[in-house]
């Protein structure tokens, strides 16, 4: 992919959102030289790996640094009394 660097991160963000394997809107994408930094929340370790793979497909010559966080789904501690 050869694009203007000003728009490249947004194009990657949009492509990740529109890939059915990912479909994640909340990713942060930063590109510095030939490094792609990915951030945000993901729901599983597998999705995290998939995001790295898809990003690498999109930008073959780049180093992908995936700093996304897997969100825990543990049971809540206490109930909140609302009324």
């Amino acid at each position: 992919m050869s694009e203007r660097p000003d728009y490249l991160p947004e194009h990657i963000r949009e492509k990740l959102f529109h890939d059915p394997r990912v479909a994640e809107q909340d990713l942060r994408v930063d590109v510095k030289e030939h490094r792609v930094l990915l951030g945000g929340n993901v729901s599983s370790l597998q999705l995290r790996h998939t995001i790295t793979e898809v990003a690498q497909e999109l930008l073959p010559g780049y180093e992908i640094v995936n700093e996304t966080t897997v969100v825990p789904t543990t049971e809540p501690e206490d109930a909140e009394p609302v009324s």
Partner: peptide, 26 residues
């Protein structure tokens, strides 16, 4: 009226629990 956003990436639990008295207050 109380509003709660229960988006999972926000609450970071399997679910949240809210308790209500069994009669309408609002």
């Amino acid at each position: 009226i109380p509003v709660r956003n229960v988006a999972q990436p926000l609450i970071r639990h399997a679910y949240n629990v809210y308790t209500l008295n069994g009669h309408r207050e609002v």
